[in-house]
Simulated assay, not measured.
Amino acid sequence: MTGFALGAEQEEWCGHLRALAADRLRPLADKGEPGRVNRPLLAALGELGLLERVFTSGALELCLLRESLAYGCTEAETALALQGLGAHPVLSAGTPEQRARWLPQVRAGRAVAAFALSEPGAGSDAAALALQAVRDTGSAASGGGRGGGRSGGGAGGWRLSGEKCWISNAPEADFYTVFARTGEGPAAKGVTAFLVPADRPGLSGEPLDMLSPHPIGRLTFDGVPVGPQDLLGEPGRGFRVAMDTLNLFRPSVGAFAVGMARAALDATLAYTAARPAFGGVLGDLQAVGHRVAEMATRTEAARLLVYAAAGAYDAGSPDVPRRSAMAKLLATETAQYVVDHAVQLHGAVALQRGHLLEHLYREVRAPRIYEGASEVQRTIIAKELYR
């Protein structure tokens, strides 16, 4: 890729992915139950080798993958991204045993991963986490079958107590990357990351009825046992594990948004070029043409900023936090603008259940909040600029 355009092979790959999303994945997504993990869809993503790409691709390739899938099937894109978000800490900070136990299952679409960071009182301010990991001075406690045997308790163990909220794939995930306060220092310096299988004693959850086709839920930790073998990285270094994961995935959240914006833009071009109006077609009206031009310009600007942020990540640039925040901010805000105006130009037809734009209108809102709301991205950008 140059600074301004993808290469021919990249364009061909993206076209292949868009067709795959529409032809192979969309039918599976349509059969899924809203608010539930679509395991057949995950299995298909594994069989097609797309989940493997999440863990072997650089940031730019991950962006192209997410943008292309989002264009044809947002549910497939989201299922793929959540596997990456939940399991990337295992790849980057897990032990050889943790990787061997979970990553092949995640890549095959047989195990469902989840990233458990947010809490009822700690969303945007992730360093304010309240989930407590208290040293366990009692006897060793048994984990579950899926958890891989005994865990927690005894010397070096902890008990997790508290709640996580608004966790994607909860409560149906098979394991959770959980961030808890172990108290080695104040704020972010006292957070530790753990890999917690879903069948650990004391762990329960409930679904939340959200504006989302994928599951989002609340998790309750009632003295859940974890031990040294469940650590992801070092005690007190969990916040860095979380931020490293988010810095990788934030540009690709922008790519997801760009994919939705491009789908809405293409639908609008086709509709306004054919819809009769005032003796011609809608596209003949200057007001319509100017609005479509603005939609296209903003989408292209967002796309290029996303690619630039991904390129900076792949190059090991020191300004990744700023670039990632800029990419997510502009792309998600742009997608909201483009989808909203696409609905307006389509009129009532776009509000019918099952219409592409009705679907996108529901999907496009959440990315402005999760993985750092737009206001948080602006704060990150300002801090980096003044650093």
Rank of each mutant, 00 (worst) to 15 (best):
A141G: 06
P201K: 00
G148W: 05
S252T: 10
S142R: 15
G152L: 03
T56H: 13
R368K: 09
D319L: 11
L195P: 02
G205S: 06
T192K: 01
S92D: 13
F249R: 04
E33L: 08
I216T: 04
E333Y: 09
L65H: 04
L60K: 05
M243E: 12
G227L: 02
A173I: 03
A29F: 01
E363V: 07
W166N: 05
E9Y: 09
E172A: 12
G109W: 00
V226F: 06
A87M: 08
P215A: 05
R365H: 12
G15T: 08
V306P: 01
F115Y: 14
S252E: 08
A327P: 01
L269H: 10
V320P: 02
G94H: 07
R368C: 03
G205K: 01
F4S: 14
Q344G: 13
G227D: 00
R146Q: 15
L20C: 15
C165W: 13
P318R: 12
D319Q: 14
G227K: 01
P215T: 04
L304W: 03
S374Y: 10
G347I: 10
G223P: 00
L17S: 01
S68A: 14
C165S: 15
A366K: 11
T78A: 08
R240C: 09
A261D: 00
F256A: 09
S374V: 15
G236Q: 07
Q10C: 08
R237A: 13
S92N: 11
R365F: 10
G154I: 06
L85E: 05
D266F: 12
F256Q: 13
L351Y: 12
A44S: 06
L17V: 07
A274T: 07
A116E: 04
L117E: 03
A308K: 06
H214P: 00
G15L: 04
S252D: 07
D199Q: 10
L65N: 03
A19K: 12
H355Y: 10
R303I: 02
L356E: 10
M260D: 00
G217W: 00
T182P: 05
G236C: 08
P186I: 12
G259Y: 02
E371W: 11
R275G: 08
V288E: 13
L285V: 12
V106N: 00
R107M: 15
A111G: 07
P104S: 09
G372A: 10
E234S: 15
Q98K: 01
P120Q: 10
V343K: 06
A22E: 11
S142T: 13
A180C: 11
D230V: 02
E358D: 14
A302W: 08
G279F: 04
A296L: 11
L69K: 02
A79R: 03
G149P: 05
P120R: 09
D222R: 15
A373W: 10
V288G: 13
V54I: 14
K164L: 07
Y313N: 06
G152I: 03
R99S: 07
A309N: 01
H214R: 13
Q83T: 06
E371T: 12
Q98R: 00
L131N: 01
F55K: 02
F278P: 00
A122Q: 04
A127F: 12
A302L: 10
Q132M: 09
Q98E: 03
V178P: 00
A22D: 10
V112S: 03
L330G: 03
D136M: 07
